[in-house]
């Protein structure tokens, strides 16, 4: 994923990564629609019972998916038949990984054609055993950087980032906001100054205009709650339409 992202960036393209909760009704069609509408990668959420980094929309989506019987195994199984040409990443909480076992989970991802993983409750200091297993299986581990990090911490985080650096847009959990927080561009700027790994802003990037604002500094955006809400309310078509709008906005 990182190689592709670097190439696209070099060609002047801004990167767009929609998040879609796996196991939700219509999620596979939504992935295909997002890919067709100009996404550069998809972040597939493997739902967890206790998603502490997520606000109401992704909580609701996670709970709904779990109630419909989604499991890590069923989602990874379904991911195999997605047949999209862009890279697929998963986002899940650490207990899902821990419970499966590091090596086994990394192997399951690789077998499903997943190339990257985002684990938001696994900070740098605890990430060693997972990163080792992921590296060995060829899975890129995306690290999160937060606005609260002192200057001395950011270089340590980006040094361990593979795929891209997830620049957390605000102090808070996922969810739509009226405006882009000033922390979003501020942190992206701090990161851009110290790394050439692609920097994508996620959490609180809620619409096309905010995405446009974020990519004035960052290499791209991750959009979660705004995408998932459209899947919940309008199905895969609504997701495709929204991703198309954002794509258009960040190119202009």
């Amino acid at each position: 994923m990182e190689t592709q992202f670097r190439e696209k960036r070099a060609a002047g393209r801004k990167l767009l990564v929609p998040y879609i909760t796996g196991g939700l009704a219509g999620w596979q069609d939504a992935v295909r629609a997002a890919a067709a509408a100009g996404a550069d990668a998809i972040e597939i959420g493997i739902p967890f019972s206790d998603p502490v980094m997520d606000g109401p929309i992704i909580q609701q989506a996670s709970q709904q998916a779990l109630e419909q019987g989604a499991t890590p195994v069923s989602i990874l199984h379904d991911a195999r038949s997605l047949d999209v040409s862009i890279p697929l990443a998963v986002m899940t909480y650490y207990n899902t990984v821990h419970h499966a076992g590091h090596e086994r989970f990394a192997a399951q991802l690789a077998a499903a054609g997943i190339v990257a993983a985002i684990v938001p409750d696994l900070p740098l200091e605890e990430s060693g055993p997972w990163c080792e297993a992921a590296d060995a299986a060829g899975i890129e581990t995306v690290m999160l950087a937060a606005p609260t990090a002192p200057d001395a911490r950011l270089p340590l985080v980006v040094a361990r980032a593979r795929g891209f650096v997830y620049s957390v847009g605000l102090l808070g959990v996922t969810g739509e906001r009226d405006t882009l927080a000033h922390t979003a561009t501020a942190l992206a700027r701090r990161l851009k100054a110290i790394t050439d790994v692609p920097v994508l802003v996620g959490v609180g990037v809620s619409n096309a205009a905010q995405a446009h604002e974020a990519v004035q500094v960052a290499d791209g955006v991750v959009m979660g709650a705004s995408v998932v809400r459209r899947l919940l309310e309008g199905g895969a078509d609504a997701v495709g339409e929204f991703v198309g709008d954002v794509r258009h906005a960040i190119e202009h």
Binding site: L122, P123, L124, E125, A146, A149
Partner: peptide, 21 residues
């Protein structure tokens, strides 16, 4: 130093909270 009691404990929090901890 990593907050372990044997193999239990640790600090598995979102990056945002690491500096606060």
């Amino acid at each position: 130093a990593t907050g372990r009691f044997g193999e239990f404990g640790g600090r598995f929090v979102p990056e945002t909270l690491v500096p606060a901890c």
